[in-house]
Design a binder for these strands. Structure first.
Lengths: 224, 224
DNA sequence: TAATAAAGTTAGGCTAACCTAACAAATTAA
DNA sequence: TTAATTTGTTAGGTTAGCCTAACTTTATTA
C-alpha cells in the first residue's frame, strides 16, 4: 500500500506523528500509549485507536493491540521533518518578523504543515542554517540529524551552585510570558540561592534579582 | 448565526470566496455562475450547490435558486484578505527566498490560508508594504484597498504601436515559463510588428528579438 | 413557440476525522 | 489471586466536503 516514494500526509496525520515523536522524547523510551497521545492531541482515545490503524496501514507506526506504540523509521522521518519545519518557522518569525518569544509557537503550528521541500530548503538557507530555535530546541538538518536534547532542568541543580539556561520544556504562551517577566532568557546564568524543603520552592538569582519559583516551573527550564 | 466578530473560515470556504472574487474580476460584473465556479475549483457543480447553501447561511454570498451568485460585503472582505495574503506571500517567496516567478503561486496557495493577523501585518512590514506582487498584480492593503486591475491585454494593442507589459492573467507555471523563455517580464516594452489576419498570430519585438505568439497567449498579458 | 441544450439542484453515498457508549484486556491493589 | 482500576478497542453516529445520477429550471435556437 505505501509507495514510500514520498506520500503526502494529511494535516492530522502529521500531527499524530509529531505528537508521537514528542512523547518518545519525553518518555525517554521510544514508546507511547493511546491515552497520553489522545491527551496531547486533545482528542478521545477512541479517535486515536482509529487513526493508529490507518498509520499502521501506511507503515508509519508499529504496534499490536493493547500494546505500546512506536514510530517506524519512515514514520520518524516524517515526524522529524515536521519538527524541522516547525522550528525553522519559529526561528523565522522570531528573527525576521520580530515576533516575541511566546508568540511563535501557535503560528508555527500552522506553518509546519506547508508542503514544499523547496520552501524549507530556501527558508533554512535564508536563516543561515540555524541549529537552535528561539526556545533553545535543536533544529534537525535536512538529513534529520540534530543536537541531543537537554535533560537537566533547573529543579535538578544543587543549592548554592549556578547553571545556564539553555532551553524550555513548556512552549505555552502563559509559561513563556512568565519566564520573560522573571527576566529570564536563553543563555542566562541562574544562581540557586536556596530551596524550601517542604515544597521545593526555589529562590533563584538572575542578573542580581532574586525571585521565587515553584518546582513545576523549575522542571520546565533546561539548564547546563 | 454569523457572529461577524471574525469567524474562522475553513480552507475550503476561503477558496470558494477567493474563486468568486476572481470570477467577479474576470467577468467584469460582480456575478458568477455555479458551473464556472465548479470548473475553477475543480469540483462538480453539485458540490458547489451544497457549499453555496453554507456560505449563504453565513451571509458570505448572496443568491437565489437558479440565480447568479454574488459576494456580500462581508464575503468580499474575507476574499480580499485571502488575496492579500496570497500576494504578500508570493512577494516574500520571490524577493526574500529567491523563488522564480513561476514557482511562487503554488506555494502561496497553501500559505494564504494561515490564520494570523499579526503574521500578515509583520510580513507586510518586512516586505516594506509592497503594492504589487511578482506577477504585477496589485496587493490589497490592510483596509482591503488596491490599485485597479488592468484590463487591456496584448491582444488589444494595435499593429505598429508599442506597449508595456504590467501583469499576467494566467499564473500557471507552464504559461509563466513560456513568458520567461520569450525574454518577457514585468515592465518590458513590447512592439507589435504585425498580426496575422486568419488566426490573430502576433509578431512582437522584445529587446530587439522578434517572436510569434498566439492570440491565446496575447490575451494573458496585461499591458498599458 | 415549441424543442433542445445548458445550467443548476436534489437525493443518496462515500471518506476522514471526530464523537459517545459499551466492552475487553492489562495492570494494580487488597 | 481475586477485585478494582486503568487503559485500550469496537460499534455506531456525526459533519464537512466531495461524488454520481436523476431531475428541474432557464436559456437558446429551429
Amino acid at each position: 500500500m505505501p509507495t514510500h516514494t514520498a506520500m503526502i500526509l494529511s494535516y492530522t496525520e502529521e500531527n499524530y506523528l509529531k505528537a508521537l515523536l514528542k512523547l518518545s522524547f519525553e518518555n525517554g523510551t521510544e514508546e507511547a500509549g493511546t491515552n497520553e497521545l489522545a491527551a496531547l492531541l486533545s482528542v478521545k482515545p477512541a479517535t486515536v485507536s482509529d487513526m493508529l490503524k490507518k498509520l499502521k496501514e501506511k507503515e508509519l507506526v508499529e504496534y499490536k493491540k493493547y500494546g505500546k506504540i512506536t514510530l517506524t523509521v519512515i514514520g520518524k522521518k516524517y515526524a522529524i521533518d515536521v519538527l524541522r519545519k516547525h522550528r525553522l518557522w519559529e526561528t523565522f518569525l522570531y528573527e525576521k518578523l520580530d515576533f516575541s518569544w511566546d508568540e511563535v509557537h501557535e503560528v508555527a503550528e500552522q506553518l509546519e504543515h506547508i508542503h514544499s521541500e523547496k520552501l524549507v530548503d530556501k527558508l533554512d538557507k535564508f536563516l543561515a542554517y540555524p541549529q537552535f530555535d528561539p526556545h533553545g530546541d535543536p533544529i534537525p538538518n535536512k538529513k534529520g540529524e540534530m543536537k541531543v536534547h537537554y535533560k537537566k532542568t533547573l529543579a535538578d541543580v544543587a543549592v548554592g551552585t549556578s547553571c545556564k539556561m539553555v532551553a524550555v520544556k513548556d512552549n505555552s504562551s502563559l509559561f513563556l510570558q512568565y519566564v520573560v517577566k522573571l527576566g529570564l532568557g536563553i543563555n542566562n546564568k541562574i544562581h540557586i540561592v536556596s530551596k524550601q524543603e517542604y515544597d521545593a520552592l526555589l529562590h533563584i538569582k538572575v542578573n542580581g534579582v532574586i525571585s521565587s519559583v515553584s518546582q513545576k516551573f523549575a522542571e520546565n527550564i533546561f539548564v547546563v
